[in-house]
Write a protein that binds this DNA or RNA. Structure first.
Lengths: 206, 206
DNA sequence: GTCTATATACAGATAGAC
DNA sequence: GTCTATCTGTATATAGAC
């Protein structure tokens, strides 16, 4: 007995995969419907427009990240959380080499178009930066320094994904994540909050 | 007296701007023709397919990079070359915040589609990595270490562009490029080639 | 709630007069 | 070389029977 949510979820999951693989603009509703095994005309019962599907997909990515980050929060050491965030399964490595980062790709693609999709995708990346900043604060950095370190951390990861995708080589992720971890390891957290100014940050990074 | 190359160049330049602004897939031939002030039907005299326009656009980007990197090679110090590569004009800062990195965006978008466009875009990024690796070699790093440092350098820059674009804030480029420069400054080049192994690299980065 | 048939719009690409 | 008119395919979206 297929409930209402049944097909809806199937559509979202199919869309999530296809959009990651081909990008939002090249992913047609007909293709999504086919993969979800739902007749094309029926799609519009669940989603008013294609953009609405995009929104649902990003929401689902957000839920997935919320769950993942929540699990990472069980780790006691902030540094270990930042390390674990970069632990990818072989499947994830392969997917990234083939299709890049799902979130980064969306931000890149829909960021140019504006609209609610761009805002939603940006908020998702923003939340990941915020979570990272929390970890750096936990390491003893002042809020502002922690934020800048978090931006650098996420930028490095996104750049790593882009190069891995561009050159279709999972080893790039492997090697680059080692470099990022080495950078993290040598960071000198400043316990005295009043000292962790912006000028200190670049020294800390260096 | 409009020569053959006249319209062709206008089409390429219009395509270059529009593809950067809207992405390849959303940029229509009609739009390109309109911006270049060329009748739609005439476009096919100069380019057999839309993909051919894409190829010409990437070629032009490549020429632009070749020229830019050649100019940077006039700077005597490799470290100063790496610094200068990150010196952006206010216009460039604004463009990046609005539309992201033209090359990174192309790699992301067409990388998923395969074909000659993906290869060409990847080669362009590859050449920039190679140039960067040359500078790190000039700083005294062994070839392998220099290559990894170059990957990290370009990844950081690409991540910076993505975040700047996603959050539509040129200040992110400003702040992040400072962080990258600070990282460059504290690198410890190893003069003895035999010592600059891969294990050393992470220490050098740290 | 479901699904077929179709409207509408516009994309890339071509034909052929000039 | 140039440009108008148009072909063809396909995308999003809707109508309406069941």
């Amino acid at each position: 007995m297929p409930r209402k949510t049944d097909k809806r979820i199937r559509l979202i999951e199919a869309a999530m995969v296809l959009i990651h693989q081909h990008g939002f603009n090249l992913t047609t509703l007909a293709y999504i419907a086919q993969e979800a095994d739902v007749p094309l005309g029926n799609v519009y019962y669940y989603f008013k427009t294609k953009e609405a599907i995009g929104e649902a997909v990003i929401e689902r990515h957000a839920a997935w990240y919320t769950e993942r980050l929540s699990k990472l929060n069980d780790i006691t050491e902030p540094m270990m959380r930042l390390f674990a965030f970069m632990d990818y399964t072989p499947e994830e490595l392969d997917r990234t080499a083939r299709y890049g980062c799902a979130i980064g790709g969306l931000c890149q693609e829909v960021g140019k178009q504006g609209g609610s999709l761009a805002d939603q995708a940006a908020k998702l990346l923003h939340d990941v930066v915020e979570w990272s900043a929390m970890q750096f604060k936990g390491l003893g950095f002042a809020p502002e320094a922690a934020h800048d370190l978090a931006m650098h951390y996420i930028a490095a990861i996104q750049g790593m994904h882009l190069l891995t995708h561009t050159f279709k080589d999972p080893k790039i992720t492997h090697r680059e994540s080692s470099v990022i971890k080495a950078w993290l390891k040598q960071l000198k957290p400043v316990s005295d909050k009043s000292m962790a100014t912006h000028g200190e940050l670049e020294d800390a990074i260096a």
